[in-house]
Simulated scan of single mutants.
Amino acid sequence: MAGTTFRIGGDLRVGRLGFGAMHLPTEPEADRQNALAVARRAVELGVTLIDTAYMYGWGANEELLAEALHPYPDGLLVTTKVGVARPDGEWALDGRPEALRAQVDAALGRLRVDRVELLQLHRVDPRIPLADQIGALRDLRAAGKVGRIGLSEVSVAELEEARRITDIASVQNRYNLLDREHEPVLAACEKAGIAFLPWRPVAWGASGARAEIAAVAAEVDATPTQVALAWLLGHSPVILPIPGTAQVRHLEENVAAADLRLTAEQRDRLDWLPQQD
C-alpha cells in the first residue's frame, strides 16, 4: 500500500481518502441537517480533502459545507470546481474567462474564504480555446484568489496543453476498478506527480455483483465497496479517491477502507477483472 497522504501541488498535504460532497442534500430541512452532520462527521473521522462544485446545487453545496465546517480546521482542504453554468434552467459548459472569474468570486463568498486552495475546471468548454480558460485560472492564481489549479474530465493531450500554460496540481476524471478508460491520463499524472481524484470511485451497484470482488471482500472481512476503494489506493500513489454519500454509516464504511490491506494475490485477481462496457 502506498502512503496514506499526498502533497497536492507538491506542498498541500492531505489524506489520500477524501470525501465527495455532491450527494449531500440541501433541502428539505431534515435532510439538510443530516447532510451537515455527515460533513462534520467526515472531518471527525480525519478526512482532510472535501470535494464540491458550483454545479452541485448551483452553489448550495458550497454554502452547506461552509455552514457545517467554517471556520475550517487547520489542514482541511475544500476544493471546488467552476466552468459549468445554468443560463436558461439547463446546465451548460461556460469556459469564458469572464464567467470563470465571476464563478470564482461567488465561490469565495459562499465558502467564506479569501482563496480557494485548489480550484478545478469542471469541464473543458470546446467553444473556448483551452489557453483562454487555463489562462483565466492562472490569472486568478496570480491575483491570490486561487492557490492551485486542477482539471476535470480531460484527455492526455488536454492535460499536456494545460501544463504548457501553467502548473496543474490535480486531475479529476471518472475512474474505478471496473472502469479504467482514463488509465493513460492516470499514467500521465503519476509521471508528473499530479494528484488524480477519481470521481465515481466505486462502480455503483456493480462492485458487489462481481463474484471476484465479493470473494475478496469475504476473505478480508470487508464490503465490496471497501475492497474497491482499497484497490484504488494501492493502484497508484497519486490516486486520491473521493467517495460520496449522504449517510454517516456509509461514510464510516468508506473511511475505514483506508486501513484495508489487500495481498498481492488478491490485487492480481482484481487487476484482471473485465471492464464495464
Rank of each mutant, 00 (worst) to 15 (best):
L49G: 04
D105C: 08
L197N: 05
G208I: 08
L65W: 11
A187I: 09
A157P: 09
H250Y: 15
Q120W: 03
V14Q: 04
G3T: 11
T79P: 00
R123H: 12
R138Q: 13
D132T: 07
A99L: 02
T245L: 02
W58F: 13
D277K: 15
E253D: 14
P243H: 00
E212M: 08
Q103R: 07
A102L: 11
H250P: 14
M1G: 12
V116C: 04
G147D: 05
M1K: 10
L76M: 06
L108Y: 07
L108M: 06
T223A: 07
R180P: 06
I239F: 00
D105S: 13
L186M: 03
I194L: 01
R40G: 09
I128C: 09
T80Y: 01
R267G: 06
L240Y: 00
A35R: 04
V185R: 02
H23W: 14
Y54V: 12
R127I: 01
L151E: 10
P71A: 13
W58V: 01
K81F: 02
A2W: 15
A143M: 08
D105K: 13
G3A: 15
E158W: 07
D132C: 08
P237N: 03
D74W: 02
P71I: 12
A21M: 02
P126M: 11
P97Q: 05
W272H: 15
L121R: 02
A136H: 12
E219F: 09
G193S: 07
L45E: 06
L240D: 04
H182V: 03
G95P: 05
V116I: 15
L24T: 08
P87E: 00
W231K: 02
A246N: 15
P224I: 09
V154S: 09
A206N: 13
P237D: 03
D221L: 09
H122I: 00
T26E: 10
R112L: 01
L119A: 07
A39Y: 01
L36T: 03
L45H: 06
A131N: 07
A42K: 10
A157K: 14
R267S: 08
F6H: 06
R115F: 10
K81H: 05
A217N: 11
E158D: 14
E90G: 12
S236V: 02
G18W: 05
L159W: 08
V104Q: 05
A143F: 06
V255W: 12
G135V: 05
P274L: 07
G10T: 06
L251K: 11
G46T: 03
P25W: 04
W91Y: 15
N61L: 11
A35C: 03
P201L: 04
R32N: 06
